[in-house]
Design a protein around this nucleic acid. Structure first.
Lengths: 203, 203
DNA sequence: GTCTATAATACGATAGAC
DNA sequence: GTCTATCGTATTATAGAC
């Protein structure tokens, strides 16, 4: 028996909620692998085995599906960061775990790029209202990184260091994706970790 | 009087050649500002004031327009690098001129991202045949950078240094685009230039 | 809540007159 | 070489039966 206490839509029961989440999950993958504008309702319908027409019961427009995907990603990112906060104690270890994403996601990244970066770039071209929503995913990471750099002893330029680290990782991903080069990711991940280590204060 | 000695199509006269080039120029801008898949024939027709149907006299498919745009960009890049080779003598100055692109293109980059990077990412999702063509634009830069790093005294890891420099610039562009932040470009350009200076060998 | 049928539009591409 | 008219398809979205 399934008992659900929270509902994102008052008129939606447990079954509907599960269907809605299934659509979001499938759309999340497809938007990453094919791009938002290149993913059709038919694509999502076939992958989710939910008829096209049903989508309009859960979402009024395609844009609303994207917003739900972004919200879902934000929740997943927050949850991941929370796990890291429990697994690692020092800011240095937490920062290195962040950089380690490169290796964990290396294969996907070479094929499809960064889920955050590629979506932001796509939307930034001509759908800037949606892009500013997607930017929220970067903000979650950035705010967490700012805290780590502050704790490490760089309270004054913590935000720039956070931007710098995210920027370096984005760049590595773009070039690794362009050249489909996993070795470049590996080498670059080592360099990033060395850089993080070099920020350790001895006093 | 216009005398043309080279023709990319045997059956095409001077007028046709000019029209063809005009289509390529307009498509180049639109593909950059709206993305390839989000740019329609109607968009190009309106911006160029050439009727939709005429395109098929010059190009068999939309993909062929993209290939012509990529070829055109490669030519422009080569020409730019040649100018730099004439304007600057030392590899250090040439590398710094490369990094200076960030400042020159700062405004466009904040709005639309990198013309090479954003196109490569878009095509990498589900049009990999086209992406491998777009990669050629990166290759022109990379091979030139490899020569500069070799001349600077790093013949063994010149290719990695080239990838590293391009990677850093791509990352800066992605974040500056995501946050629409020209100041981040300015600061980062200074950091890149300091890094290039630090590579100078004293012996 | 679920599903089918279909509207309304935009797309890339073709045919053929001039 | 130029231009118009149009085909066939794919798209998002709606209407309405169940």
């Amino acid at each position: 028996m399934v008992i659900k206490t929270t509902r994102s839509n008052e008129a939606m029961g447990a079954k509907g909620e599960a269907n809605r989440q299934h659509i979001v999950d499938v759309a999340d993958n497809l938007f990453y692998q094919k791009g938002y504008n290149q993913t059709s309702f038919t694509d999502i319908a076939e992958a989710s085995e939910i008829p096209r027409g049903n989508f309009y019961y859960y979402f009024k427009t395609k844009d609303e599906i994207l917003l739900a995907v972004i919200e879902h990603r934000v929740v997943m990112i927050r949850s991941m960061l929370q796990t890291w906060d429990q697994e690692f104690t020092t800011p240095l270890d937490k920062l290195k775990r962040f950089a380690h994403i490169l290796r964990v996601e290396g294969q996907d990244v070479c094929q499809f790029g960064c889920p955050l970066g590629s979506l932001t770039i796509e939307l930034g071209k001509a759908q800037q209202e949606l892009q500013s929503q997607a930017k929220g995913m970067f903000d979650v990471f950035r705010e967490w990184l700012v805290k780590q750099f502050s704790d490490l002893g760089y309270p004054d330029n913590a935000n720039h260091l956070a931007m710098q680290l995210m920027s370096r990782i984005q760049g590595i991903v773009v070039m690794a994706h362009a050249y489909n080069d996993p070795a470049f990711i590996e080498t670059s991940a080592n360099e990033i970790e060395s850089w993080i280590d070099s920020l350790k204060k001895t006093n």
